[in-house]
Design a protein around this nucleic acid. Structure first.
Lengths: 200, 200
DNA sequence: GAATACATGTAATGCGTTACATGATTTA
DNA sequence: TAAATCATGTAACGCATTACATGTATTC
């Protein structure tokens, strides 16, 4: 089974969901660490069912299309539990922004700074969102956030990774942006590969 | 042009390289933020040449196979400079370990902790490597690390992102590992989804 | 009247990895 | 003598995205 299968099982282990529900979850909060389009979700659900890891029932609705609501099976839960404790390969990183940083010596510092500032703002916005959720969780879920057997704890743990990652990335963007912006005003190190100047 | 093309151009802008050289760079240091196998590199080099962004000359060697040494063209440098200041889309994250964290409430805490500890060790090892390079750079490249027009600065900037990222990830792994390990000894919250116990 | 939400699928395309293919030289 | 390094390619496969496809009901 591929990772997407386990991602779906992880959600179905918490509650019954339709393909459409899964799609929205993977666009939203869960999408921070795993996402998929509906074109991937529907076939994967079929595979999970074929393998006996999930099953569905039809729910008729008035005024809306009928939907297939999926639930995890005992076999699915077992497969998920086994996967959880298998060692993970550190996946290769591919970060286009760091790639740009590596060649930034060729760019006009002012223009380049804008690219990093934009990204910084995105990470800061995301961070603010996460911090709000964290506060909400700490106020409303209290006890269970310390219980490693609770889904609340698991969600909280994932969120903490999100918070740390966004903070770290934003910080790096700020650092490099400042460097680039200061260089722009510093006349001294003029001997430039950097082409245009068009300031104003 | 695809990102891999710019990755290659970014390296050719610093020095002339063969496909084989590129392959090794993308396995090593540069591989932290971008990597590619030789099966991708050779065709991409051909495309770059076709587009006029790079050109090669044959270097005959004794005792080794001949090689094609590639250099960047003026058009290549311009394309690279334009790409550098174009805004970047924040790519979707796919992190299998965070995905496991999200379902960790179903796992045996002790076994799960091992998975996170393993990963923590990997990030700490990488961090140690990077910190050594940082010290070396600060001692040997001094001046140029503050000159945003220097390739040294650009390499340093990328490295700093690597350092921050490894530290952040290792920290999160440590945090969750401790939580999981403490829970194992805490008898209190026994009411467990967690199956096995087989301690010793 | 147009766009968005609900709901579920298939097909085409793109990028990356693994495997296939070849061959000389150096090191263990 | 077996394995690793140098050196360059092509082919097959897998996963993910975009585009194609259809249809109702609600909201703007």
């Amino acid at each position: 089974m591929k990772t997407l299968g386990y991602a779906i099982l992880g959600l179905l282990a918490r509650e019954e969901l339709s393909g459409y529900d899964l799609k929205r979850l993977m666009e939203g909060r869960v999408g921070y660490f795993w996402q998929a389009k509906h074109s991937q979700i529907y076939p994967e659900l079929a595979l999970l069912e074929e393998g006996g890891f999930a099953r569905h029932r039809l729910v008729e609705q008035s005024g809306r299309p009928d939907k297939k609501v999926y639930g995890i099976t005992e076999a699915g839960r077992e497969a998920l539990q086994e996967w959880l404790v298998e060692p993970v390969e550190k996946p290769p990183t591919r970060d286009e922004l760091v790639l740009k940083a590596y060649s930034v010596w060729l760019a006009d510092p002012g223009k380049a700074a804008r690219v990093f500032r934009e990204r910084q703002a995105e990470h800061e916005a995301r961070l603010a969102e996460y911090l709000e959720i964290e506060v909400w969780m700490e106020n409303n879920l209290g006890e269970s956030l310390d219980d490693v057997g609770s889904p609340d704890f698991a969600g909280y743990a994932s969120l903490r990774r999100g918070i740390a990652a966004e903070r770290e990335y934003a910080g790096w963007c700020r650092w490099i942006s400042e460097k680039l912006e200061n260089a722009r005003s510093d006349g001294e190190l003029a001997e430039g590969q950097a082409s245009g100047a068009e300031e104003r």
